[in-house]
């Protein structure tokens, strides 16, 4: 049995408080906010619209352009605004996590721009970003097969836990008088209806069985997240 104790007293399969809201950016075609506790992302979708420069146009399907960035005040140490190695990578994986559900053939030669901004960061920001972007795309009326939800599963010490925080990400254990890193972060995006994964990243060490366990927990957690996303979208009419 796992002995790891979570610093905020959560169960292993419990997420932080999730908030989701649709229609937060007035001038965008679709927008949403999504947060895991104090990891908060805002996504704005523009388009489908005309794509310039023309050489990027694809006569077969629409181009999906995701832009992920953390705002300077989102972390304790000021983050220099603008693209970095990390944000470029996350923009890329977000694009590939979202594109399987979108019906991009409906708008040839056009572009859909997705801007994801992290306004408060406390680990698993890319998952919050994907969740917000998925809501914003639905709000923009883009045809899609289902909503994408994402969660980061971690192997902290000897336990597999859902929705890790920054504190857990930096978890260390003492071994032979030395401190070694004992946390593995596994962010994943899941298509609950199709029962498929569209994003799976891993940095650290896990065994195959642990990975299987992590994916099972991810699928279970995403089922809950997708319900929250649906509720957020259904609230639009009441406003």
């Amino acid at each position: 049995m796992a002995t790891y104790k979570r610093p905020d007293g959560r169960e292993y399969d419990e997420t932080r408080k999730i908030e989701a809201k649709v229609g937060v950016v007035k001038r965008a075609d679709g927008s949403a906010m999504f947060s895991f506790g104090s990891s908060r992302a805002i996504a704005a979708v523009y388009g489908p619209r005309q794509l310039h420069p023309q050489h990027l146009q694809n006569p077969e399907k629409c181009l999906l352009r995701c832009y992920y960035d953390m705002l300077p005040f989102s972390v304790a140490e000021r983050k220099r605004p603008g693209p970095s190695r990390r944000s470029t990578e996350i923009s890329y994986v977000t694009t590939s996590a979202l594109s399987p559900v979108l019906k991009l053939e409906a708008f040839p030669n056009a572009v859909i721009d997705v801007y994801i901004l992290i306004i408060e960061a406390d680990a698993s920001t890319r998952c919050a970003g994907i969740n917000a972007a998925s809501l914003a795309l639905a709000h923009a009326g883009v045809p899609m097969t289902e909503l994408v939800s994402a969660v980061s599963i971690g192997k902290i010490g000897d336990a597999i836990v859902a929705d890790i925080t920054k504190e857990e990400e930096d978890y260390k254990i003492k071994k032979d008088g030395k401190e070694i890193k004992a946390a593995t972060d596994i962010p994943m995006a899941i298509l609950s209806r199709a029962n498929k994964l569209s994003l799976l990243q891993l940095d650290g060490k896990v065994t195959l069985d642990e990975l299987k366990e992590a994916i099972a927990l991810g699928k279970k957690t995403c089922k809950k997240i997708v319900e929250i996303q649906k509720q957020a979208l259904k609230k639009v009419k009441e406003e």
Partner: peptide
């Protein structure tokens, strides 16, 4: 995403937002 409407046999979704 939109409003669901059923007329006779045909079901459709009317958009609520978007371009």
């Amino acid at each position: 995403f939109g409003l669901f409407e059923k007329t006779d046999k045909i079901v459709k979704v009317i958009p609520l937002s978007g371009v």
